[in-house]
Design a protein around this nucleic acid. Sequence first.
DNA 1: GGGATTTGACCTCG
DNA 2: CGAGGTCAAATCCC
Length: 337
Amino acid sequence: MEWSWPESVLSNGERVKEELMQGRELAGQLCRVFDDHKSTLVSGGFGGGDGGSAEDLVDKILGSFANTLLILNGKESDGEIVSGDQIQGISSGGSGDSSSWDANHTAPVIKSEDFYEESCKSTSTFKDRRGSYKRRKTSHSWTRDTPTLTDDGHGWRKYGQKRILNSKHSRNYYRCTHKFEQSCKATKYVQQIQDHQPMFRTTYHGNHTCRDYLKASELVLDCTSPRESSKFIRFGDTKQDHPFFSSFTSVRKEELVFMEESIIKEEIPPTSDDRVMTSHDSHSWLYEYLVSPDLTTLESSAPPDGFSSNLYEFDHEDVISRLMMGSFDLDEVLQYI
DNA sequence: GGGATTTGACCTCG
DNA sequence: CGAGGTCAAATCCC
Protein backbone atom coordinates (compact mmCIF):
# COMPACT_ATOMS: atom_id res chain seq x y z
CA MET A 1 0.00 0.00 0.00
CA GLU A 2 1.49 3.25 -1.00
CA TRP A 3 0.37 6.67 -0.12
CA SER A 4 1.75 10.02 0.71
CA TRP A 5 0.62 12.85 2.86
CA PRO A 6 -0.79 15.82 1.04
CA GLU A 7 1.63 18.70 0.76
CA SER A 8 -0.42 20.72 3.18
CA VAL A 9 0.03 17.99 5.72
CA LEU A 10 3.74 17.83 5.28
CA SER A 11 4.11 21.56 5.54
CA ASN A 12 2.00 21.57 8.65
CA GLY A 13 3.68 18.58 10.16
CA GLU A 14 5.12 20.55 12.99
CA ARG A 15 1.78 22.04 13.80
CA VAL A 16 0.18 18.63 13.79
CA LYS A 17 2.85 17.33 16.09
CA GLU A 18 2.42 20.31 18.34
CA GLU A 19 -1.32 19.87 18.52
CA LEU A 20 -1.07 16.17 19.23
CA MET A 21 1.57 16.69 21.86
CA GLN A 22 -0.64 19.24 23.51
CA GLY A 23 -3.55 16.87 23.30
CA ARG A 24 -1.59 14.18 25.05
CA GLU A 25 -0.39 16.53 27.72
CA LEU A 26 -3.90 17.78 28.34
CA ALA A 27 -5.22 14.26 28.43
CA GLY A 28 -2.70 13.49 31.13
CA GLN A 29 -3.82 16.48 33.08
CA LEU A 30 -7.40 15.45 32.65
CA CYS A 31 -6.68 12.05 34.10
CA ARG A 32 -5.10 13.64 37.13
CA VAL A 33 -8.20 15.75 37.48
CA PHE A 34 -10.28 12.60 37.35
CA ASP A 35 -8.06 10.99 39.91
CA ASP A 36 -8.38 13.93 42.25
CA HIS A 37 -12.09 14.24 41.84
CA LYS A 38 -13.37 10.75 41.29
CA SER A 39 -16.07 11.04 43.88
CA THR A 40 -17.42 14.32 42.63
CA LEU A 41 -17.20 13.14 39.06
CA VAL A 42 -19.64 10.35 39.75
CA SER A 43 -22.22 12.83 40.90
CA GLY A 44 -21.68 14.90 37.82
CA GLY A 45 -19.43 17.52 39.31
CA PHE A 46 -16.21 18.56 37.70
CA GLY A 47 -13.48 20.03 39.75
CA GLY A 48 -10.47 22.10 38.88
CA GLY A 49 -6.98 20.77 38.36
CA ASP A 50 -3.56 22.19 37.93
CA GLY A 51 -4.37 23.04 34.33
CA GLY A 52 -7.99 24.11 34.78
CA SER A 53 -11.31 22.33 35.19
CA ALA A 54 -11.91 18.95 33.64
CA GLU A 55 -14.41 20.53 31.33
CA ASP A 56 -11.86 23.05 30.15
CA LEU A 57 -9.33 20.33 29.65
CA VAL A 58 -11.76 18.29 27.62
CA ASP A 59 -12.40 21.33 25.49
CA LYS A 60 -8.73 21.91 24.98
CA ILE A 61 -8.02 18.30 24.15
CA LEU A 62 -10.81 18.15 21.68
CA GLY A 63 -9.62 21.42 20.29
CA SER A 64 -6.17 20.00 19.74
CA PHE A 65 -7.53 17.02 17.91
CA ALA A 66 -9.87 19.13 15.87
CA ASN A 67 -7.07 21.49 14.94
CA THR A 68 -4.96 18.54 13.94
CA LEU A 69 -7.66 17.31 11.66
CA LEU A 70 -8.14 20.74 10.21
CA ILE A 71 -4.45 20.97 9.52
CA LEU A 72 -4.52 17.55 7.94
CA ASN A 73 -7.28 18.77 5.75
CA GLY A 74 -5.42 21.93 4.85
CA LYS A 75 -7.93 24.10 6.62
CA GLU A 76 -5.48 25.97 8.74
CA SER A 77 -4.90 28.59 6.13
CA ASP A 78 -8.57 29.31 6.07
CA GLY A 79 -8.36 30.50 9.62
CA GLU A 80 -10.59 27.75 10.86
CA ILE A 81 -8.34 26.52 13.57
CA VAL A 82 -10.25 26.80 16.75
CA SER A 83 -9.46 27.06 20.37
CA GLY A 84 -10.70 24.64 22.95
CA ASP A 85 -13.43 27.04 23.89
CA GLN A 86 -14.73 27.06 20.38
CA ILE A 87 -14.62 23.36 19.85
CA GLN A 88 -18.07 22.47 21.06
CA GLY A 89 -20.19 21.51 18.16
CA ILE A 90 -17.46 20.64 15.72
CA SER A 91 -18.63 17.73 13.74
CA SER A 92 -16.51 16.78 10.84
CA GLY A 93 -14.08 17.60 8.14
CA GLY A 94 -11.90 15.79 5.67
CA SER A 95 -12.34 13.33 2.92
CA GLY A 96 -11.68 9.77 2.02
CA ASP A 97 -13.17 6.50 1.00
CA SER A 98 -12.90 3.71 3.48
CA SER A 99 -13.52 5.90 6.45
CA SER A 100 -14.26 9.41 5.59
CA TRP A 101 -16.01 12.57 6.35
CA ASP A 102 -18.68 13.69 4.03
CA ALA A 103 -16.90 15.22 1.11
CA ASN A 104 -19.55 17.83 0.56
CA HIS A 105 -19.23 19.03 4.07
CA THR A 106 -16.79 21.80 3.39
CA ALA A 107 -16.97 23.72 6.63
CA PRO A 108 -15.63 21.57 9.42
CA VAL A 109 -16.37 24.03 12.14
CA ILE A 110 -19.91 24.70 13.08
CA LYS A 111 -21.45 26.26 16.10
CA SER A 112 -23.28 24.16 18.58
CA GLU A 113 -26.49 26.02 18.00
CA ASP A 114 -26.25 25.13 14.34
CA PHE A 115 -25.62 21.57 15.23
CA TYR A 116 -28.72 21.28 17.31
CA GLU A 117 -30.84 23.40 15.07
CA GLU A 118 -32.06 20.38 13.16
CA SER A 119 -33.55 18.67 16.17
CA CYS A 120 -35.22 21.82 17.36
CA LYS A 121 -36.90 22.33 14.05
CA SER A 122 -37.96 18.78 13.49
CA THR A 123 -39.38 17.75 16.80
CA SER A 124 -42.53 19.64 17.49
CA THR A 125 -43.76 21.34 14.36
CA PHE A 126 -44.38 18.31 12.21
CA LYS A 127 -44.33 15.60 14.78
CA ASP A 128 -47.91 14.58 14.24
CA ARG A 129 -47.45 14.28 10.52
CA ARG A 130 -46.31 10.89 9.48
CA GLY A 131 -43.09 10.75 7.54
CA SER A 132 -42.42 14.38 8.10
CA TYR A 133 -38.97 15.42 9.05
CA LYS A 134 -36.34 18.04 8.50
CA ARG A 135 -34.31 16.61 5.68
CA ARG A 136 -30.65 17.13 6.19
CA LYS A 137 -29.06 19.33 3.62
CA THR A 138 -25.47 19.64 4.64
CA SER A 139 -25.43 16.91 7.17
CA HIS A 140 -22.44 16.08 9.28
CA SER A 141 -21.72 12.60 8.14
CA TRP A 142 -18.93 10.19 7.67
CA THR A 143 -18.73 6.80 6.11
CA ARG A 144 -17.07 3.56 6.92
CA ASP A 145 -16.63 0.54 4.70
CA THR A 146 -16.40 -2.87 6.25
CA PRO A 147 -16.62 -6.39 4.82
CA THR A 148 -18.90 -7.38 7.66
CA LEU A 149 -21.60 -5.74 9.67
CA THR A 150 -19.56 -4.82 12.66
CA ASP A 151 -20.66 -3.67 16.06
CA ASP A 152 -19.58 -0.10 16.60
CA GLY A 153 -20.45 -0.26 20.25
CA HIS A 154 -23.74 1.56 20.13
CA GLY A 155 -27.25 0.27 20.23
CA TRP A 156 -29.07 0.74 16.96
CA ARG A 157 -32.67 0.15 16.00
CA LYS A 158 -33.64 -0.30 12.42
CA TYR A 159 -36.37 2.08 11.39
CA GLY A 160 -36.47 1.82 7.66
CA GLN A 161 -35.36 0.13 4.53
CA LYS A 162 -35.23 1.64 1.10
CA ARG A 163 -34.31 0.57 -2.34
CA ILE A 164 -31.82 3.01 -3.78
CA LEU A 165 -31.66 3.96 -7.40
CA ASN A 166 -28.85 2.29 -9.35
CA SER A 167 -28.07 0.06 -6.44
CA LYS A 168 -28.72 -3.64 -6.24
CA HIS A 169 -29.08 -3.64 -2.51
CA SER A 170 -31.52 -1.79 -0.39
CA ARG A 171 -30.35 0.63 2.24
CA ASN A 172 -31.12 -0.03 5.88
CA TYR A 173 -31.73 2.89 8.18
CA TYR A 174 -30.89 2.81 11.86
CA ARG A 175 -31.39 5.21 14.70
CA CYS A 176 -29.92 5.18 18.16
CA THR A 177 -31.74 2.92 20.59
CA HIS A 178 -31.86 5.83 23.01
CA LYS A 179 -33.39 8.25 20.53
CA PHE A 180 -36.46 8.91 22.62
CA GLU A 181 -35.35 8.24 26.15
CA GLN A 182 -32.22 10.35 25.79
CA SER A 183 -33.02 12.40 22.71
CA CYS A 184 -30.03 10.95 20.95
CA LYS A 185 -29.97 12.11 17.35
CA ALA A 186 -27.43 9.67 16.00
CA THR A 187 -28.50 7.76 12.93
CA LYS A 188 -26.80 5.67 10.36
CA TYR A 189 -27.61 3.76 7.26
CA VAL A 190 -25.93 0.69 5.92
CA GLN A 191 -25.76 -0.36 2.35
CA GLN A 192 -23.99 -3.22 0.65
CA ILE A 193 -21.82 -1.74 -2.04
CA GLN A 194 -20.11 -4.86 -3.35
CA ASP A 195 -21.33 -8.27 -4.33
CA HIS A 196 -18.38 -10.49 -5.06
CA GLN A 197 -16.53 -9.43 -1.94
CA PRO A 198 -19.25 -8.26 0.40
CA MET A 199 -18.60 -4.71 1.44
CA PHE A 200 -20.93 -2.66 3.57
CA ARG A 201 -20.85 1.08 3.63
CA THR A 202 -22.07 2.59 6.85
CA THR A 203 -22.86 6.27 6.83
CA TYR A 204 -23.20 7.92 10.19
CA HIS A 205 -25.16 11.07 10.79
CA GLY A 206 -25.13 13.10 13.94
CA ASN A 207 -23.45 12.34 17.17
CA HIS A 208 -24.50 10.24 20.09
CA THR A 209 -25.73 12.46 22.86
CA CYS A 210 -26.81 9.45 24.79
CA ARG A 211 -24.98 7.36 27.26
CA ASP A 212 -25.24 3.67 26.66
CA TYR A 213 -25.63 2.62 30.26
CA LEU A 214 -25.26 -1.06 29.57
CA LYS A 215 -21.90 -0.65 27.98
CA ALA A 216 -20.82 2.45 29.81
CA SER A 217 -21.25 0.68 33.11
CA GLU A 218 -18.76 -1.89 32.01
CA LEU A 219 -16.18 0.62 31.08
CA VAL A 220 -13.67 1.82 33.56
CA LEU A 221 -11.75 4.93 32.92
CA ASP A 222 -8.59 3.75 34.56
CA CYS A 223 -6.31 6.67 35.04
CA THR A 224 -3.93 5.13 37.51
CA SER A 225 -1.21 5.61 34.99
CA PRO A 226 -1.29 8.78 32.96
CA ARG A 227 0.92 7.02 30.45
CA GLU A 228 -1.60 4.32 29.86
CA SER A 229 -4.68 6.37 30.17
CA SER A 230 -3.59 8.90 27.65
CA LYS A 231 -3.78 6.41 24.86
CA PHE A 232 -7.33 5.34 25.36
CA ILE A 233 -9.96 7.89 26.04
CA ARG A 234 -13.61 7.33 25.72
CA PHE A 235 -14.85 10.66 24.57
CA GLY A 236 -18.45 9.59 24.52
CA ASP A 237 -18.32 9.19 28.24
CA THR A 238 -17.20 12.64 29.02
CA LYS A 239 -19.74 14.89 30.60
CA GLN A 240 -19.62 17.05 27.56
CA ASP A 241 -20.47 14.93 24.60
CA HIS A 242 -18.55 15.82 21.55
CA PRO A 243 -19.83 15.41 18.03
CA PHE A 244 -16.35 14.77 16.83
CA PHE A 245 -15.79 11.66 18.79
CA SER A 246 -18.84 10.55 20.63
CA SER A 247 -20.31 8.58 17.80
CA PHE A 248 -17.89 5.85 18.52
CA THR A 249 -17.57 3.81 21.59
CA SER A 250 -14.41 2.37 22.86
CA VAL A 251 -14.31 -1.36 23.08
CA ARG A 252 -13.04 -3.33 26.01
CA LYS A 253 -10.69 -6.22 25.64
CA GLU A 254 -13.40 -8.71 26.58
CA GLU A 255 -15.68 -7.29 23.95
CA LEU A 256 -12.94 -7.48 21.40
CA VAL A 257 -12.34 -11.12 22.18
CA PHE A 258 -16.02 -11.72 21.70
CA MET A 259 -15.95 -9.83 18.46
CA GLU A 260 -12.92 -11.77 17.28
CA GLU A 261 -14.73 -15.00 18.03
CA SER A 262 -17.75 -13.79 16.15
CA ILE A 263 -15.65 -12.99 13.15
CA ILE A 264 -14.01 -16.38 13.26
CA LYS A 265 -17.39 -18.05 13.43
CA GLU A 266 -18.51 -16.12 10.43
CA GLU A 267 -15.42 -17.28 8.53
CA ILE A 268 -15.38 -14.22 6.38
CA PRO A 269 -12.69 -14.49 3.73
CA PRO A 270 -10.05 -11.81 4.01
CA THR A 271 -10.20 -8.95 1.63
CA SER A 272 -7.36 -7.94 -0.59
CA ASP A 273 -8.31 -4.34 -0.47
CA ASP A 274 -5.81 -2.98 1.98
CA ARG A 275 -7.29 0.48 1.86
CA VAL A 276 -10.19 -0.79 3.81
CA MET A 277 -9.73 -1.54 7.43
CA THR A 278 -11.41 -4.89 7.76
CA SER A 279 -13.32 -5.69 10.84
CA HIS A 280 -10.76 -8.31 11.66
CA ASP A 281 -7.96 -5.85 11.26
CA SER A 282 -9.68 -3.16 13.18
CA HIS A 283 -10.43 -5.48 16.04
CA SER A 284 -6.89 -6.69 16.13
CA TRP A 285 -5.71 -3.20 15.91
CA LEU A 286 -7.83 -2.11 18.80
CA TYR A 287 -6.81 -5.16 20.71
CA GLU A 288 -3.21 -4.28 20.19
CA TYR A 289 -3.83 -0.84 21.51
CA LEU A 290 -5.59 -2.13 24.54
CA VAL A 291 -3.09 -4.75 25.50
CA SER A 292 0.04 -2.97 24.45
CA PRO A 293 1.58 -1.70 27.66
CA ASP A 294 3.82 0.77 25.97
CA LEU A 295 2.34 3.83 24.45
CA THR A 296 5.45 4.88 22.68
CA THR A 297 6.64 1.70 21.06
CA LEU A 298 3.87 0.38 18.95
CA GLU A 299 6.20 -0.28 16.06
CA SER A 300 8.22 -2.59 18.21
CA SER A 301 5.33 -4.61 19.49
CA ALA A 302 5.04 -7.57 17.20
CA PRO A 303 1.65 -8.40 15.83
CA PRO A 304 -0.01 -11.54 17.14
CA ASP A 305 0.60 -14.75 15.28
CA GLY A 306 -1.18 -14.91 12.01
CA PHE A 307 -1.41 -11.20 11.61
CA SER A 308 0.36 -9.64 8.74
CA SER A 309 2.89 -7.04 9.62
CA ASN A 310 1.33 -4.77 7.10
CA LEU A 311 -1.53 -4.52 9.52
CA TYR A 312 0.18 -1.40 10.65
CA GLU A 313 0.50 0.03 7.24
CA PHE A 314 -2.51 2.17 6.79
CA ASP A 315 -3.18 5.40 5.08
CA HIS A 316 -3.68 8.68 6.82
CA GLU A 317 -7.41 8.38 6.49
CA ASP A 318 -7.27 5.43 8.81
CA VAL A 319 -5.35 7.50 11.26
CA ILE A 320 -8.00 10.14 11.06
CA SER A 321 -10.67 7.54 11.39
CA ARG A 322 -9.06 6.12 14.45
CA LEU A 323 -8.60 9.53 15.90
CA MET A 324 -12.31 9.83 15.57
CA MET A 325 -12.78 6.58 17.38
CA GLY A 326 -11.03 8.03 20.34
CA SER A 327 -8.28 5.48 20.52
CA PHE A 328 -4.96 5.99 18.90
CA ASP A 329 -1.31 5.99 19.52
CA LEU A 330 0.24 9.39 19.32
CA ASP A 331 3.61 8.20 18.18
CA GLU A 332 2.06 6.07 15.53
CA VAL A 333 0.37 9.14 14.17
CA LEU A 334 3.53 11.18 14.43
CA GLN A 335 5.59 8.75 12.44
CA TYR A 336 3.68 9.82 9.38
CA ILE A 337 4.50 13.46 9.80
C1' DG B 1 -46.15 -8.72 26.68
C1' DG B 2 -42.67 -5.86 25.23
C1' DG B 3 -39.02 -4.75 22.28
C1' DA B 4 -37.27 -5.21 17.53
C1' DT B 5 -38.14 -5.54 12.67
C1' DT B 6 -40.78 -5.03 8.40
C1' DT B 7 -42.96 -2.38 5.11
C1' DG B 8 -45.86 0.85 2.79
C1' DA B 9 -47.18 5.58 3.28
C1' DC B 10 -45.81 10.07 3.68
C1' DC B 11 -42.88 14.15 3.47
C1' DT B 12 -38.87 17.11 2.03
C1' DC B 13 -35.65 18.78 -1.04
C1' DG B 14 -32.90 19.10 -5.23
C1' DC C 1 -41.38 15.15 -9.93
C1' DG C 2 -38.76 11.60 -8.09
C1' DA C 3 -35.20 9.95 -4.93
C1' DG C 4 -34.15 9.69 -0.40
C1' DG C 5 -35.30 9.81 4.58
C1' DT C 6 -38.65 9.01 8.26
C1' DC C 7 -42.88 7.49 10.43
C1' DA C 8 -45.84 4.21 12.39
C1' DA C 9 -49.01 0.21 12.07
C1' DA C 10 -48.49 -4.55 11.57
C1' DT C 11 -45.89 -8.34 12.48
C1' DC C 12 -42.28 -11.09 14.43
C1' DC C 13 -39.58 -13.00 18.05
C1' DC C 14 -37.85 -13.96 22.59
